[in-house]
Design a protein around this nucleic acid. Structure first.
Length: 477
RNA sequence: GUCCCCAUCGUCUAGUGGCCUAGGACUUAGGAUUUUCGAUCCUACAACGGGGGUUCGAUUCCCCCUGGGGACGCCA
């Protein structure tokens, strides 16, 4: 049987890390099984949904490389793929439940419901709808309707346990009595999430529902709906949540959580996918650096752990740096160019830029760091990073080195890495200073930093004249 | 309050009764290399939440406790 999975985000903001992980897992599974990956936009929350976010979701997904086979923009055999365009379908299915008495009108107002909830809570009782409207007679309903009251529609939850097998959680059991009659249609004729999702998943013939852990308690409700409609039940796979460092659900207060933030900071999609895959999952081999193809090949629900995972930015950074180091220089050059342009660097000398990139490649964990890393090559004046750097330059021995270095510089016409090394040897002999004490002052004079890329190559790229200028500046500092 | 789920180094995880003196990765600390820095390589620190069972033997199976998370909405 062909597998059909869907990623169904709500356009209420940017694509979130957690949602992205859900999308990735759905996509990986679709690829693994040669199935169909569907994008469905769940925009039934009129107040919070916005069209602009739909475009952003497309962009983020495309950037990650997760292309969909059916969706609002590409169409497909189960038109439409935006819930706001399917309102009449939901209406029709709701009427069907009403007719078969599996659902009923509820005239309670939000205020009344709120009050009821408050009272139950105060009495330390279960907060469930009390089925007040279930017992309304036909006449009462008619008169309420005649008054112009707009009722919501509630599903009448039958008693009895609901059991199902979850691909990652295993056997799950819920007591029917612990589930209250839930609203499937709001008074304005808009479906609620649980209802719309089931109608769509049923109609779109979704075979596997892969989604976040936070939906497990929705699942029994949905199963009841599937049964009420006679839809074939999909397989469920509830993947663990991603947590912040304080072990609560990852959210804005933990820092950047939207995928586009990571895109703009210069994280690589393959690093993001690799990293996110490793949350609550591990490969059989234990390898952690895995290509997209390997992730597709190795996808297996049985290897997804049941417990939540903390999002560790440190490890993501390391992994992104690793992926950057693996990039070939031309590719890195093109990836990094937009950042340099944005920072107004004069990158007309591409040959020089290439040397710069090759040099700082090992020092980057995010692409946007190219701006600060390359800064030393695109300025006319050295500024010292901190007091420690300034102190190094001011040391008496450092000043000795500078004078000696300057003399050497005057004896040459052109500077390259090898000549620089020879010069350093001479300076060492002349001053009797060696090792760190010799190299660090020159590094700081040339770059302003205590740390940085290989010094001879820095000198080569800077060139004779700039080196002279910077050393002179360090002397008079 | 009710329902559901989870529990191995600081973090991500391996582990499905003996191979575990619990393995790997990130982080941190040392070292090697580099006459400097980074990258790289090596080494080290560091965990089975507690209590009961079952068993010849429990990280692994069962129960309780504790801790954490999620849901209980005319949000998704």
């Amino acid at each position: 049987m062909e597998t059909r999975v869907r990623f169904a985000p709500s356009p209420t903001g940017h694509l979130h890390i957690g949602n992205a992980r859900t999308a990735i897992l759905n996509w990986l599974f679709a690829k693994h099984t040669h199935g169909t990956f569907i994008l469905r936009i769940e925009d039934t929350d009129l107040a919070r949904s916005a069209d602009e976010y739909i475009g952003q979701i497309y962009e983020d997904l495309k950037w990650l490389g997760l292309h969909w086979d059916e969706g609002p923009d590409v169409g497909g055999p189960h038109q439409y793929y935006r819930q706001s365009e399917r309102l009449d379908i939901y209406q029709q299915y709701a009427q069907q439940l009403l007719a078969s008495k599996k659902a009923y009108y509820c005239f309670c107002t939000p205020e009344e419901l709120e009050q009821m909830r408050g009272e139950s809570l105060a009495r330390r009782e279960d907060v469930q709808y009390n089925r007040k409207c279930l017992y309304l007679s036909e006449e009462q309903q008619r008169s309420l309707l005649a008054q112009g009251r707009k009722p919501a529609i509630r599903f009448h939850v039958p008693s009895g346990d609901i059991v199902f097998f979850d691909l990652v959680k295993g056997d799950l059991r819920f007591e029917g009595d612990s589930i209250g009659d839930f609203v499937i249609m709001r008074s304005e004729g808009i479906p609620t999430y649980n209802f719309a999702a089931v109608v769509d998943d049923g109609l779109m013939k979704i075979t596997h529902v892969i989604r976040g852990d936070d939906h497990v308690s929705n699942t029994p409700k949905q199963i009841l709906l599937y049964r009420a409609f006679g839809f074939e039940l999909p397989q469920f796979a509830h993947i663990p949540m991603i947590l912040g460092p304080d072990r609560t659900r990852l959210s804005k207060r933990h820092g950047a959580t939207s995928i586009d933030h990571y895109r703009y900071r210069g994280y690589l999609p393959e690093a993001i996918i690799n990293f996110l895959s490793l949350l609550s999952w591990s490969s059989v081999s234990g390898d952690e650096i895995l290509s997209i193809q390997q992730l597709i090949d190795e996808f297996d629900f049985r290897r997804i752990s049941k417990s939540a995972a903390v999002f560790d930015i440190e490890k993501l950074n390391w992994m992104n740096g690793y992926y950057i180091r693996q990039l070939d220089n031309d590719r890195l050059l093109s990836l990094v160019t937009p950042f340099l342009k944005q920072a107004n660097y004069d990158i007309s000398d591409q040959l020089r830029l290439k040397k710069v990139i090759a040099l700082i490649k090992d020092h980057m964990e995010q692409l946007d760091q190219v701006v600060e890393q390359a800064a030393i090559f695109y300025r006319d004046q050295v500024s010292f990073a901190d007091n420690e750097a300034r102190a190094v330059v001011r040391k008496e021995s450092s000043q000795k080195i500078f004078w000696s270095f300057l003399r050497e510089l005057h004896s040459i016409a052109e500077l390259d890495a090898n000549i620089f090394r020879d010069m350093m040897k001479t300076v060492q002999k002349e001053t009797g200073i060696m090792g760190r004490d010799l190299w660090q002052p020159i590094r700081v004079a040339l770059t302003g930093h205590l740390h940085g890329p290989e010094l001879p190559l820095i000198a080569e790229i800077l060139g004779r004249d700039k080196c002279e200028k910077f050393i002179r500046a360090a002397i008079s500092n």
